[in-house]
């Protein structure tokens, strides 16, 4: 006795067919779809038209699915798409959405797993680079979409006494990201349509920190060399200023106090911090 064609069964079957990476016909014949509705019963579900078979009608939706996923991911990862080229990016998208189908009402979250997925996909020697590139692109998207919160003013920081400064904890604004990546991935990052202002380009293959921050609707990107990147990473992860500076002194013995002061001025000017707190355990 065949199972009654309930709405739930029809929807589950149709979705299984539509997300098949090859074709609707392959989807109808696939094991997951067969487990729901036998291919011999498809005419009980969908009507053929004068011009198209049942599989061809389903195929209109099936073909649009991957195109839509590709467009969404290309919009968030334009440089990854350009680097891989149309053919490889298509395969990347197909493999990715099979592993990480959208589970949100918005396509804005579709690419959240791309950096982790890229670290396991394709040519082994290239994985680190494309993962880093996608981390930068994801960071950029998140900074664009983050809510606006007012940055802490230089005057508020200047009011702190030197003793209090040791215990100071700094919180970054929501529209902030700091990524430590291979500098080569920066060469692949070029998003003119995002209105990003690249302040500098760093050649080479070493690791660098890349700072993204949005202020007044404008996202800026800056590459931080060695000590500056390590100090900002420590501070924005919640480590009090005194302890972060002690760590810095151990790791970068040649850093001078005037350099640290200059970094702080720049971070505050860029609007990196939203709050300064003396709470020992925030």
């Amino acid at each position: 006795m065949p199972e009654p064609l309930t709405l739930d069964l029809v929807e589950r079957w149709m979705q299984t067919v539509l997300v098949h990476p090859e074709s609707a016909e392959a989807g109808i014949q696939s094991s997951p779809a067969r487990a729901l509705i036998d291919p011999g019963r498809v005419s009980e579900v969908v009507l053929a038209s004068g011009h198209l078979t049942v599989a061809e009608r389903l195929g209109i939706y099936q073909e649009m699915y991957l195109l839509r996923m590709r467009d969404a991911l290309e919009s968030d990862y334009p440089n990854l798409a350009r680097h891989l080229g149309p053919h490889r990016f298509w395969h990347f998208v197909s493999d990715y959405v099979e592993a990480h189908p959208s589970r949100s009402y918005t396509l804005n979250r579709l690419g959240d797993h791309v950096p982790a997925f890229a670290a396991t996909w394709g040519k082994r020697k290239e994985r680190g680079l494309i993962s880093d590139l996608s981390r930068l692109e994801l960071a950029l998207t998140r900074v664009f979409d983050a809510p606006e919160d007012p940055p802490v003013s230089p005057e508020a920081l200047a009011r702190l006494t030197p003793e209090a400064s040791t215990e100071l904890r700094l919180s970054p604004v929501a529209a902030f990201a700091l990524e430590r990546v291979r500098s080569a991935s920066l060469r692949l990052l070029d998003s003119p349509e995002r209105e990003v202002v690249p302040r500098e380009a760093v050649p080479g293959s070493r690791h660098v920190h890349v700072l993204f921050v949005r202020k007044g609707g404008q996202v800026s990107r800056r590459t931080l060399e060695g000590a500056e990147g390590h100090l900002l990473e420590a501070l924005t992860s919640g480590i009090p200023l005194g302890r972060a500076l002690t760590r810095l002194g151990r790791r970068h013995r040649t850093t001078r106090p005037c350099e640290v002061e200059s970094w702080f001025r720049e971070w505050v000017e860029e609007g990196v911090f939203s709050a300064a707190s003396l709470d020992p355990d925030p």
């Binding site: 739930d8 929807e11 589950r12 979705q15 539509l18 997300v19 939706y61 649009m64 699915y65 839509r68 996923m69 969404a72 189908p101 959208s102 589970r103 949100s104 009402y105 396509l107």
Partner: peptide, 8 residues
């Protein structure tokens, strides 16, 4: 359906 969204 089934927690997934095909956005169509």
């Amino acid at each position: 359906v089934a927690g997934k969204n095909v956005h169509d």
